[in-house]
């Protein structure tokens, strides 16, 4: 497989892979904070949320690159998928800012 094709294929799932890792991390932090009674629980969560969104923004605004027909089409689909991942990241974890952490 050529390098460009490999990148196109990986970037198709890049955003959502980050999203999944972030999901596990945030859910884990939420549970750990409650279990150990962290005083700065919400601050930690909001910080993690910020980092996650920042990381998700990278593939969502990655410039399109392609060599060849297949990777051209793939990278358009990948761009859309990564923007969807960014949107999903912003919306799904927005509740860290206002919902109650441990009740």
């Amino acid at each position: 497989m050529r390098q460009g094709d490999k990148i196109a294929l990986i970037s198709l799932v890049a955003g959502f892979t980050v999203w999944s890792v972030g999901f596990v991390a945030l859910y884990g932090l939420q549970a750990l904070g409650c279990a150990y009674g962290w005083p700065t629980h919400r601050a930690v969560l909001i910080l993690a949320y910020g980092i996650l969104v920042a990381v998700l923004a990278v593939p969502a605004f990655w410039p399109l690159r392609s060599d060849g027909e297949a990777s051209a089409t793939l990278s358009v689909a990948a761009l859309w998928a990564n923007r969807a991942a960014l949107g999903a990241g912003v919306l799904v974890f927005l509740p860290v800012t206002f919902t109650s952490t441990c009740v």
Partner: peptide
Amino acid sequence: GYRAIIAAIVALGFLSFG
């Protein structure tokens, strides 16, 4: 919307685990 569908099912695949 061939490409949009690809993006949609990739999104669906991941979201469904969340």
